[in-house]
Computed example of a mutant assay.
Amino acid sequence: MERQKHIVWHHSTVTKKGRQQLNGHKSCVLWFTGLSGSGKSTLANAMDHALYSQGFQSYVLDGDNIRYGLNRDLSFGVDDRKENIRRIGEVAKLFVDSGQIVSTAFISPFQNDRELVRSMFEADEFIEVYVKCPIDICENRDPKGLYQKARKGEIAEFTGISSPYEAPSQPELIIETNKQSIEDSVGKIFHLLREKKIL
């Protein structure tokens, strides 16, 4: 692109590896994906709190929060939803480079978009966590009242109703929030992080 012709990447003096050594653990992105109401934000925040409580460097990027600021210019149309996920991938990459464990809670319904983000990271830095929950339970929870609005036609292209959700084919972890408690789910994620020698 023309506007990128005169841009040169500036390498940091402090490396990612150096930051990881200072923190005492490796860095990665926990990419929570699932339907609205599946429990992504709840689980991401519970994991963040557990990591924080044990002295690990972590942060949460939440879908709604990001749209208040960084992505406030984006709509919910197909192209803008793709751009929303791409930007989040880039931000998550910065957090990983800073040596932190970043949890992202986004529906991110399309496999291609998630694979694009995965390609931004090194091996074992991108951990896809499929927050699996039957749509009828998600709809009964409906914490934001979005399913009700979608059923009335007030929200177009709503995932699970008028727009598809492509479940991950090979996620690193599946959490079934209608069957597992928050505590058990957080424990499973911790186990995976230790198995991968991130913690």
Score class of each variant (00 low, 15 high):
residue 196 K to H: 03
residue 127 I to E: 00
residue 180 Q to P: 03
residue 3 R to D: 15
residue 191 H to L: 14
residue 90 E to F: 12
residue 124 D to P: 11
residue 5 K to E: 04
residue 195 E to R: 08
residue 66 I to D: 02
residue 98 S to G: 11
residue 121 F to Y: 11
residue 145 G to D: 02
residue 2 E to L: 15
residue 53 S to R: 14
residue 117 V to F: 07
residue 130 Y to D: 05
residue 164 P to C: 05
residue 94 L to V: 12
residue 187 G to T: 11
residue 198 I to L: 02
residue 16 K to A: 05
residue 107 I to D: 00
residue 96 V to Y: 02
residue 78 V to D: 08
residue 20 Q to W: 08
residue 41 S to R: 03
residue 132 K to P: 08
residue 195 E to C: 08
residue 22 L to H: 10
residue 168 P to I: 10
residue 163 S to R: 10
residue 146 L to P: 01
residue 172 E to P: 15
residue 187 G to W: 05
residue 50 A to L: 09
residue 108 S to F: 02
residue 198 I to F: 02
residue 151 R to T: 08
residue 35 L to T: 08
residue 120 M to C: 12
residue 43 L to H: 01
residue 44 A to V: 06
residue 54 Q to P: 06
residue 45 N to A: 13
residue 134 P to V: 05
residue 187 G to K: 05
residue 51 L to A: 00
residue 64 D to F: 06
residue 131 V to I: 15
residue 122 E to P: 10
residue 145 G to C: 03
residue 182 I to M: 09
residue 96 V to C: 01
residue 58 S to I: 06
residue 33 T to V: 06
residue 64 D to A: 07
residue 29 V to I: 11
residue 32 F to D: 04
residue 7 I to T: 09
residue 188 K to P: 12
residue 119 S to Q: 13
residue 56 F to S: 01
residue 8 V to E: 11
residue 62 D to C: 09
residue 64 D to N: 07
residue 135 I to L: 08
residue 18 G to L: 06
residue 22 L to T: 13
residue 117 V to W: 03
residue 121 F to M: 10
residue 97 D to K: 14
residue 189 I to G: 00
residue 127 I to W: 02
residue 101 I to A: 07
residue 162 S to D: 02
residue 126 F to W: 10
residue 101 I to C: 07
residue 12 S to Y: 09
residue 5 K to G: 04
residue 199 L to S: 04
residue 69 G to R: 07
residue 41 S to T: 11
residue 36 S to I: 01
residue 142 D to E: 07
residue 92 A to T: 14
residue 152 K to L: 14
residue 161 I to S: 02
residue 30 L to M: 06
residue 99 G to N: 08
residue 73 D to A: 14
residue 138 C to E: 02
residue 163 S to F: 08
residue 170 Q to R: 12
residue 182 I to F: 09
residue 121 F to T: 07
